[in-house]
């Protein structure tokens, strides 16, 4: 098995790794780099618990082979400053917390792109983040608050 060299920017810092071409970005983050904030729910692209930014767009890291981030910019939930989580705690957007890292990533991305709401609803943009606990109302409220700030997520 030959490995592939992958150089990319992760949370603002350069990373260089030699890895199995079949390795998923989710596993690289969690098991190789110890960034366990990103969660695995389904492993099939359905739940969004593994959401990270790839060149500024939310993607499911369980569906990204790590070799494909060569030369790219990746941000994981660890890049998000703790105080950005305030609205999620205050508005009942999190209960068991399993979905929260992914929810936060998508929510703050929406917050940074208020123009998306000219064409999309918050619910449509959040449809790729499943939550078994909250019934989504708290999540939508927290996104609205994040929108009020309109800050870039990282």
């Amino acid at each position: 098995m030959s490995t592939v060299q992958v150089v990319f920017t992760l949370n603002g810092a350069a990373v260089s790794l030699d890895l199995d071409p079949a390795e998923r970005l989710l596993d690289t983050l969690r098991y190789r780099l110890g960034l366990t904030g990103t969660k695995e729910g389904c492993g099939e692209g359905e739940c969004g618990a593994c959401t990270v930014y790839l060149d500024g767009l939310p993607v499911n890291s369980c569906l990204v082979p790590t070799y494909q981030v060569r030369g790219a910019r990746v941000e994981s939930v660890e890049a998000i400053a703790a105080e950005r989580l305030g609205p999620f705690l205050a508005q009942g957007a999190t209960q068991c917390g399993a979905c929260t890292p992914g929810v936060v990533m998508t929510a703050l991305w929406i917050g940074a792109h208020p123009e998306l709401l000219e064409t999309h609803t918050i619910r449509e943009l959040m449809a790729g983040n499943l939550c078994r606990c909250t019934g989504y109302d708290g999540i939508v409220d927290a996104v609205s608050t994040a929108l009020g700030h309109g800050e870039p997520p990282v």
């Binding site: 939310p58 499911n60 790729g128």
Partner: peptide, 12 residues
Amino acid sequence: ARQVGAIQIQAR
């Protein structure tokens, strides 16, 4: 396009 999965799938 908007029917395909959600943003995370549409982006890729």
